[in-house]
Design a protein around this nucleic acid. Structure first.
Lengths: 355, 355
DNA sequence: CTGTTAGCGCTTTCAA
DNA sequence: TTGAAAGCGCTAACAG
């Protein structure tokens, strides 16, 4: 590896009394006469010999390494994705090169650039905002890429593996509507939005919105409202990020608008926790006074009181599937876009509207 | 990278009208006559040329990639460590190859083996149990290695970066003692212990216990008890793992022993949450009837009710520091063992024993 | 099926 | 300083 002058093909061949080509063949699974194979096996064993990966690479072999760029590594959603990817990669005998960008664009570019210097068979990528133009990065020209956790609108020409975020927003909202709620607030979480709340409706119509998964959730929200004939009220929409503190401040923000609301759809269990915390601190009971929907079905949602009604999404599976899809692409097969379903999970943070 | 017949040194040299050696030198920061340098710079720019990493590797250059093997990737402790490592690595222009082993030994070996086939400048490693003999893995013979989140007892010859787990156990226990508690239960969390509760006291004396951070916590617990002249009662010790469910079942287990206890020291905020959940379900109030200490100061600890008194540890920093230490070793400098302090964080899950 | 040999793209002597 | 040329360890085309 790093230092360590290990043996080479020549040593092994010499010891086995065959040519280096034979050793190479044997090690690469090409047919070799059994007697020779045995001798080679012996020599390989004796030296605990491994082919030098660098030397193979230079001959255009695959590196067995795939890149994975995520907005954040210590966020439960992405951590689960990563764990899934790691598991699948291990099964494939692949290694994973990770990069995190703290949800920041600038860091993302730097990370991509650093990856570009490396030897990758392929890349799994979860962009934080649509303006990155991965495709323009020269080094990635010919690199197989799969987009994870973002929908097809992002890079239409690449395979995507993602959750049905629209369905998530829709299910949340519809469920609240079915409980009798009509003043449903929507907390739209973004990493780095370059637009305002007011512009959200407008942005919805532009292409490439898939980087903003909350926009899809928002679409689901609007669709459910429409289905129930409830008029959209922009004052019920709050833009925030994905954390506990965001939930707290957004709840305060909503409260400060002095409008009535009977329920809230969030984009994250963390946000939902923050919301509940603030609401209860204000003497507003969840779910008696206000119903709150989480998103993600993190373990956390079962740990707090009230337990969170939420949307279950399987990020672990997204990770695994992304690796599988990438594997296909790397081996010159095609990979379809894959959308995984989400599920409504009803617990205790929502209840029938008392009339 | 993967495919894509990119330019080579020859193309650049030809275009610049110099020899390939000159281009190589220029690109490697070796002195070159300004006029030539300019021409080369030009050519490089024009082709957006990058040295082929594989070809450099074969000449014994560094890969710029370090490995990181963790018991789990979607566990908040390790996710934070990873995020820290990723940040520091980015600053160093290094890439990180991650491996997770689900806290399982067998997977760990497989992961290590997979890494061994790769080209790494070094490795950061958090073993799950002491029996792995990393050193015996031939491929790692000469690889710089730093042990993260495990104390010096693990591989005495390697640099370690870890938290003061002993201090954590000690602080927790001492704090409870100072509140007047005397029947302090200890929940010992392990990934894959190969011993029983009864053997813990025995194991404590054997070398290499650092892989079991709970053992150090346990030492701290014992030391605090001794300091306050409280006799150790093995019936108050429960062995478990690190999750919410473990906390629940362990609390039930303790309850089933029908002995009195007034407080519990855990090894994880998750466990503490489970404990509180179960206790309260049994009508036992936290902290009024029983005080509970968490461990880790996860964001979660502020999100539940009661907010957790816990031990703060900075896993992010462990990750960063590990990369820094490894960087030193890679560059043939020495790296000292580094122990980071932990801090007692008092919130609402603990209170004075009412007498 | 096996051995010989020509590179892969780069770094690094060695002379100039 | 610079350029020419000798490898680094391996794969694959070629001839046997």
């Amino acid at each position: 590896m790093a230092k360590g002058k290990s043996e080479t093909l020549i040593d092994v061949a010499k010891y086995a009394g065959v040519s280096i080509a034979t050793v190479s063949r044997y090690l690469n699974g090409v047919k070799v006469r059994p007697e020779l194979a045995a001798k080679v096996a012996d020599a390989v064993e004796k030296f605990d010999y491994r082919l030098n990966p660098a030397a193979r690479l230079i001959k255009g072999q695959k590196s067995g390494t795939i890149g994975l760029i995520l907005p954040e590594l210590d966020h439960p959603y992405f951590a689960a994705l990563l764990e899934g990817a790691a598991e699948q990669a291990r099964e494939f005998g692949q290694n994973i090169l990770v990069g995190s960008c703290h949800g920041k664009h600038e860091v993302e570019e730097q990370t991509i650039d650093q990856f570009a210097h490396n030897i990758l068979d392929g890349l799994i990528y979860t962009p934080v905002a649509k303006s990155v133009n991965l495709i323009e990065i020269e080094a990635f020209r010919e690199l197989p890429v799969v987009i994870a956790a973002r929908d097809q609108s992002v890079y239409p020409q690449l395979p995507h593996v993602y959750q049905d975020t629209h369905g998530g927003g829709y299910l949340s909202t519809k469920y609240l509507l079915s409980l009798g709620h009509r003043k449903i607030a929507f907390f739209a979480s973004f990493w780095e939005p370059d637009f305002t709340e007011k512009e959200m409706l407008e942005i919805l119509k532009t292409p490439g919105t898939g980087v903003y998964s909350s926009l899809n959730r928002f679409r689901g929200y609007l669709d459910a409202l429409e289905e129930f004939g409830v008029e959209y009220d922009p004052r019920l929409v709050i833009k925030c990020s994905y954390g506990f503190e965001d939930g707290k401040s957004s709840a305060k923000h909503l409260l400060s608008r002095m409008i009535t609301f009977d329920s809230i759809v969030t984009a994250s269990d963390y946000v939902a926790c923050g919301v509940i915390d603030t609401l209860e601190a204000q003497g507003i009971s969840v779910p008696n006074d206000v119903s709150v929907m989480g998103y993600g079905d993190l373990e956390l949602s079962k740990m707090i009181k009230p337990q969170l009604s939420t949307i279950h999404q399987n990020m672990f599976e997204i990770g695994k599937q992304s690796v599988r899809s990438l594997y296909e692409v790397i081996h010159d097969r095609t990979a379809e876009d894959i959308m995984l379903d989400v599920e409504l999970v009803v617990r205790d943070s929502t209840s029938k509207k008392d009339t």
